[in-house]
């Protein structure tokens, strides 16, 4: 097996690990992300016209895995937006406080 072929396979397994880590929301994804970047950089200068069909197919799988990783990252962003929606609860608390502290509220009535 040639060096580029080995590199492509290693890149494929790294992409799989990255995707799984992202799905688990495991911080180890940072290591896989960094490793994937290094492998891609090395591969960029090594691919040649005689690259075998298996390696080409593997590269295509790596790209698909990358797209899936992007989708997962967007889901993470969506999770933050979901938390934002949860802040609506704060808004309801604010409304409640306004009622409690209003001009005729019991909390400010010295006779209460």
């Amino acid at each position: 097996m040639s060096d580029p072929d080995r590199l492509v396979r290693e890149l494929e397994s790294c992409s799989v690990a990255l995707l799984e880590a992202l799905r688990r929301r495991d911080a180890i994804y940072l290591e896989y992300l960094q490793r994937r970047e290094q492998l891609l950089a090395r591969l960029f200068g090594m691919v040649a016209p005689n690259t075998g069909p298996e390696a080409r197919a593997a590269l295509e799988r790596v790209r698909i895995l990358g797209n899936l990783a992007v989708v997962e990252a967007q889901r993470m962003r969506h999770a933050v937006a979901t938390d934002l929606a949860a802040l609506e609860q704060e808004r309801r608390i604010a409304k409640g406080l306004r009622e409690v502290c209003g001009p005729h509220s019991l909390s400010l009535d010295v006779r209460a």
Binding site: L22, Y29, L33, R36, E37, L40, A41, L43, F44, V47, P49, T51, R56, L59, E60, V62, R63, G66, N67, A69, V70, A73, Q74, M76, R77, V80
Partner: peptide, 26 residues
Amino acid sequence: RLQAADTLLASLESQQNMLTATIDSL
């Protein structure tokens, strides 16, 4: 949390571009 998500997306975008360029070149 936003910084982390943003960095991840930026890296993946860069990597996918690089990968696409490699495949296209091939």
